[in-house]
Amino acid sequence: MNPTAVYAKHPDYVQRDVAGECILVPVRRSLTDANSIYVLNETGAALWQRFDGAHTVENICTSFMDEYDVAPSQLHQDVDTLLADLLSIQAIQEVAVAHGPTG
């Protein structure tokens, strides 16, 4: 996991909250890709909401630990796994962050 990476939700997915569950539905894709929907549990949805294209993974983990009772090592491992899962279905994408001049 790259702690300085920034991820944003992919526009090909829409999120719907149904019966207390966060559901990701692929849209604008070929039907072969659209034959599944994806469900996130409560912590998965809370992390998904934070992939806003502005905050780094490290920022997200820090704010998440303020809210949830979790050890840093456990959270980093879980975020790493979730990122891999979301990237594999192209639900998120890494965004380039412009760095200002350092001089």
Binding site: V39, E42, L86
Partner: peptide, 17 residues
């Protein structure tokens, strides 16, 4: 504020509609 209980994040695939 007490912290919320933590469970590992999970992504489930639901094949389909």
């Amino acid at each position: 504020t007490p912290k919320k209980p933590y469970t590992s994040p999970q992504l489930y695939r639901v094949p389909l509609q």
